[in-house]
Design a protein around this nucleic acid. Sequence first.
RNA 1: GCCGAGGUGGCAGAAUGGUUAAUGCGACGGACUGCAGAUCCGUUUCCUGGGGGUUCGAUUCCCUCCCUCGGCUCCA
Length: 481
Amino acid sequence: MRRFRVYDSMSRSVRPFVPILPPRVGLFVCGMTPYAEAHIGHGRTAVTFDVVARALRRWGYRVFYVQNVTNLDDKVLARAGEEGVDPLLLAERHFAAYRASMARLGVISVDHYPFATDYVPEILRQIATLVERRAAYAAAGSVYFDVGSFPEYGRLSGNRIDEPRPGARLEPDPAKRRPEDFALWKAASPGEPSWESPWGPGRPGWHIEDTAITLRLLGERYDLHGGGLELKFPHHEAEIALAESTTGTAPLVNYWMHAGLLTMKGEKMAKSLGNVVRLDTILDRVGPGVLRFYYLNAVYRNPLEFEDPKSLDEAGEAYDRLLLPARRISEEIARAPSDRAGRELPPDLAREAAAVVDRMDDFLAEDFNTREAIGALFGWSRRLAPIFPELSGFAIGALLDLERPYRWAADLLGLGGESPPLPSGAVGPLVEVVLAARARARARGDFAESDRLREELRAVGVTVEDGASGSRWSYTEPPAG
RNA sequence: GCCGAGGUGGCAGAAUGGUUAAUGCGACGGACUGCAGAUCCGUUUCCUGGGGGUUCGAUUCCCUCCCUCGGCUCCA
């Protein structure tokens, strides 16, 4: 197991990571409420923790990564009411779309997506315990958590609830003892899905589902908890209060990680502000590599500004440049017979390839600094640029060595790694035939014919580029439409 | 008001108590080219919100002020 350090929001410092039960690591990340399409802010958080999980696994930890799905809450009910559909089906539908978007984004590391409503028995048991311990009280068919019963409330966020709060937007609720108390169980309204309980029919409140799920799946105490920064207060604060009040065990988690928010014109992306950009919209435009590059080119904890289309254009340029050597190398490998003879790598170059991988790994191990890791990879690409013309002279093993830093980036960051689509069967040789004809046309100065052939190849997805050492071609999906 | 995170070059965005503050984008110049594209090389040595302080030395540590954003409702 590789040692690494994480910024822990609770202690506000970068700390060495020590698992409770090595090599196992319990990772919980607050997931989404599936009442609308995922936007690129969700994507940022998802990619952040995807990289965390990928890295930990690569480093020898056995990660169990759980991400909950709040499939029933006020938002889901409201949206379902508008559309006139069953709330749980609405949630199901949006969750399916979310999974599909995540798959496109290359988020492959989540082990389990538990639904809140599948944990109602656990939730009810936990509420009963809290009531028994006088940390929660029933009122008018609902049950509320008594924030005053938990002196530590506010420690994560630095908020203190005993202060006057002129800016607070909490509405006084006569059922609550104090405005900060929050519902664990909400009395059923007509037409809503509800479950029987000792306090009457109702449904779970928001905060309690996470701890009911984690107590069951990850235990009373686990390693890592992640989520968007906006959830720090009150949601994560509530989780801590609920779990620790229930079990008497503290702390609930050893490391808190919070992902910075995606902003547009300085403001966070949020539906209420009307500035959301759907994840699928972007993925339709640029593909997963560019979007992941855009996210990972910043430090996960800091705000990241998104400007459409500038951010993605720049990311696209940089991403293509970054991975150009990787594409050249894998094309070379794909086209060459596996037993091809060729030069071995100069020893210094082989050493450098290994050193680049180590450096990137080191950066990642220091609070997941993907930006610096990418910077190191840029260095490698610059290093390789001058030896492009020699590529075909290397043995396969040498090419594989040169490729190592890119494979690292594909495995841990999910950047690149898509093998270039090569046409199958006779297409390759046929392209060569056409190119030979084109070369003859160029040789006799018939540039009209040459350009015509280039255009026709492009129409079927073959891009031809002339260079000093002849023409090279690559295959991309034929232009749509 | 309280809590938290930030203010770095044209832009995006790192890093560090100490040689020319990374990297990328963009821009400019050059090479290559029939053209196009791509690529390569070079330049972009006058960038760390304001003011104090600690220090031989701070962008980095401390104080203060200003500004922005986030949280204090649901929110990745």
